[in-house]
């Protein structure tokens, strides 16, 4: 069981990159602990800015830094960063097109028992409606490294969503083909596809394994970049497997499943099931408990898969 947090890997990667790239600036809003950025602050004090608990200000400051040639990374809890500072993100970052990287820490339901104030289940819906922001999520620590490196290469507004707790590996190492905007097929199959991102890639792989014992051949796609979506990969899955389950650690309204559905229904309609957090304050608990409560477990995904395959066969 992996015990290394993705947020720690993001920090270590930024430290590595900063050895050469002195334009990198990390900003925290009294969040260097929760963002695991304390080692960066110690190593590069002149490239670290503390703003105190002021999310609107931190995003505006980052935009000003970027407009002056810096490469700012704002590391702040996703729940506060994306909703409290939504307008600064919309205007100072996206609309003004400043090279600001937003690192939303402890996203989704990873703050668990702290409740809805600390859950970030609207960030994807909100940010994806704003033109010009790339949105990405790493499935494990290896991908967190690749994604951080890719962010530093990419010029333009971008949001990385990062969970709080260590997640189990889905890759053996960080040596694999990773490109922003290009989804990764983790497991091939033709009966149906599960398309997901982040922590639930692992759940999807476990579900696919369980399905295979019952003769269902499930494709698993890691859509690490949520915007821009890899539409080719989605349509290929729709064409070749004829049924799609999406899983997101996010509200089912306006989020990832909705984004996939927009592509599917307008180009290649197939039966879909959108799994995620329903329209309610999420139940408190550890991630796995919460996911299972909302049907995101290998066992329940098998049931959902069977329903979809039946729909597909019946010509829905």
């Amino acid at each position: 069981m992996n015990t290394i947090h993705n947020r720690r890997v993001v920090c270590e990667t930024l430290i590595e990159l900063s050895e050469k790239d002195r334009d990198i600036v990390v900003l925290c809003s009294d969040s260097r602990g929760s963002a695991s950025m304390a080692p960066f602050a110690e190593k590069f004090p002149s490239q670290f800015i503390e703003t105190g608990i002021a999310e609107q200000n931190i995003v505006g400051i980052a935009a000003g830094l970027a407009a002056s040639g810096k490469k700012p990374y704002v590391a702040s809890p996703a729940c506060f960063l994306t909703t409290r500072a939504a307008e600064q993100i919309k205007i100072d970052v996206a609309y003004s097109n400043t090279n600001v990287k937003l690192l939303g820490i402890s996203a989704g339901i990873s703050y668990g028992a702290l409740g809805m104030t600390h859950h970030s289940l609207q960030d994807i819906a909100l940010l994806r409606a704003i033109p010009g922001i790339l949105i990405a999520v790493a499935a494990d620590r290896h991908e967190a490294k690749r994604l951080t490196e890719a962010f530093n290469e990419y010029t333009g507004p971008a949001y990385m969503r990062i969970g709080r707790n260590p997640v189990e590996d889905v890759y053996d190492s960080d040596d694999y083909d990773f490109q922003l905007g290009k989804a990764i097929t983790m497991r091939d199959g033709n009966s149906l596809s599960i398309i997901t991102f982040g922590e639930t890639v692992k759940t999807a792989l476990e579900a696919a394994e369980l399905m295979s014992t019952g003769g269902i051949d499930c494709r698993v796609i890691n859509m690490h970049t949520i915007k821009p979506l890899d539409n080719d990969c989605i349509l290929k899955a729709a064409n070749e497997t004829g049924a799609i389950i999406t899983i997101e650690e996010h509200s089912i309204f306006g989020g990832f499943g909705a984004a996939v559905a927009e592509t599917v229904v307008q180009n290649c309609p197939v039966p879909m099931k959108i799994m995620g957090i329903p329209d309610e304050p999420a139940v408190p608990g550890k991630s796995r408990e919460v996911f299972a409560y909302y049907g995101i477990s290998p066992e329940n995904l098998c049931i959902e898969a069977e329903k979809l395959i039946k729909m597909k066969k019946n010509g829905w």
Binding site: Q56, G60, I61, A63, G64, A67, S68, G69, I91, D92
Partner: peptide, 24 residues
């Protein structure tokens, strides 16, 4: 320099620009 028009944004952006100036 920047797109403005929603009030209350400019001074934070100015702080960022001034910080960058100090850093460099």
């Amino acid at each position: 320099e920047m797109n403005t028009g929603s009030l209350g944004h400019g001074l934070s952006v100015g702080v960022g620009m001034a910080l960058a100036g100090k850093m460099d």
